[in-house]
Amino acid sequence: MGRVRWVLLGVVATLALAGTGIGAAGQSPLGGKGPQQPIAFPHDLHAGKSKIPCMYCHYSADRSWDAGIPAVATCAGCHLPGGVPMVRADRPGVKQLAEYWQRKLPIPWVRIYNLPDYVHFPHMRHVKAGMQCQECHGPVETMPVVQKVVPLQMGWCIQCHRKRGARTDCFMCHY
């Protein structure tokens, strides 16, 4: 009986340790749905069905650190050319868009991919290196609601950098 207890204790301790290790080595919880956005923008319809290239809206991904989010004017350019509701004008999202556009207000999008202040991530270098957006952002063209698909933790960056022979010098990203 005593030995059994010790063995059990050992097993539990090992499992707990392993669990912590796996938890630490793995990723923060990603599951569930993406956050609710001020306008339920369907990436699957725009990028998937309509096949609009990513960089039509995220226009600076190949030349800037930031990928860029489209100006309201970009949305309005298609949906409200000349201020007139045109494409899919009956959809609630487009109606919301029209409201923002008329009031000249920015749309307060909820940020999904966020890096801490001490990480400097150059989008342009990754795009120029021939990486597909989907490699980090997942199959956005199939997502009605965009959600985070990668942990954005350092180990995740590093394994890819090592695989591709990219720099793993700390001072490349942290300063």
Binding site: A24, A25, G26, P151, Q153, M154, G155, W156, Q159
Partner: peptide, 8 residues
Amino acid sequence: PYPNQRMI
């Protein structure tokens, strides 16, 4: 020294 996700 322990294995961690940062690999460092």
